[in-house]
Amino acid sequence: MENNDRITKQDLEKMYGVNRTTIEVWRKRYGLPLIEISSHSKYIRKDDLIKWEDGMKDKF
């Protein structure tokens, strides 16, 4: 897998215009599949983000 297939938590914040607390709420409440390398390093695979987004469409 190439690095460009990974989106950092900070990139998600910029993409959606939200803060880190919102990303954590999405992770805990809505199952956003972040991969945690350490407490300061989290990312999501692009394909997993697309699947998660598609699944969220059904909830709203």
Score class of each variant (00 low, 15 high):
1 M>V: 06
1 M>I: 07
1 M>F: 14
1 M>C: 10
2 E>G: 02
2 E>Q: 07
2 E>D: 07
3 N>T: 01
3 N>R: 14
3 N>W: 12
4 N>L: 13
4 N>W: 14
5 D>H: 12
5 D>P: 00
6 R>I: 06
7 I>P: 03
7 I>N: 08
7 I>R: 10
8 T>D: 06
8 T>M: 06
8 T>W: 15
9 K>V: 01
10 Q>R: 15
11 D>L: 10
12 L>Q: 02
13 E>G: 01
13 E>Y: 07
13 E>F: 05
14 K>S: 06
14 K>M: 04
14 K>H: 13
14 K>R: 14
15 M>T: 04
15 M>P: 00
15 M>Y: 11
15 M>K: 14
16 Y>V: 03
16 Y>R: 08
16 Y>G: 05
17 G>P: 04
17 G>M: 08
17 G>L: 08
18 V>N: 07
18 V>T: 02
18 V>H: 10
19 N>F: 06
19 N>S: 05
19 N>M: 00
19 N>A: 00
20 R>E: 04
20 R>A: 00
21 T>V: 05
21 T>H: 13
21 T>S: 07
21 T>R: 14
22 T>S: 09
22 T>K: 12
22 T>D: 03
22 T>H: 10
22 T>M: 07
25 V>A: 07
25 V>I: 14
26 W>T: 00
26 W>Q: 03
26 W>F: 10
26 W>A: 02
27 R>D: 05
27 R>G: 04
28 K>T: 10
28 K>M: 09
28 K>D: 06
30 Y>Q: 09
30 Y>L: 13
30 Y>F: 15
31 G>C: 05
31 G>T: 03
32 L>E: 00
33 P>M: 03
33 P>H: 10
33 P>W: 06
34 L>D: 03
34 L>F: 11
35 I>R: 12
35 I>W: 08
35 I>V: 14
36 E>S: 13
36 E>W: 09
36 E>G: 03
36 E>D: 05
37 I>W: 10
37 I>H: 11
37 I>R: 14
37 I>F: 11
38 S>M: 04
38 S>Q: 05
39 S>K: 15
39 S>F: 15
39 S>E: 14
40 H>D: 05
41 S>K: 15
41 S>P: 01
42 K>W: 09
43 Y>K: 06
44 I>F: 11
44 I>A: 00
45 R>H: 10
45 R>S: 04
46 K>W: 12
46 K>L: 13
46 K>G: 03
48 D>T: 02
49 L>F: 12
49 L>P: 02
49 L>N: 05
50 I>K: 13
50 I>D: 05
51 K>W: 11
51 K>Y: 10
51 K>I: 07
52 W>R: 08
52 W>N: 05
52 W>H: 08
53 E>R: 11
54 D>N: 12
54 D>G: 08
55 G>E: 08
56 M>D: 03
57 K>Q: 11
57 K>G: 02
57 K>W: 11
57 K>C: 06
58 D>K: 14
58 D>W: 13
59 K>W: 13
59 K>C: 05
59 K>L: 15
59 K>R: 13
60 F>Q: 09
60 F>K: 08
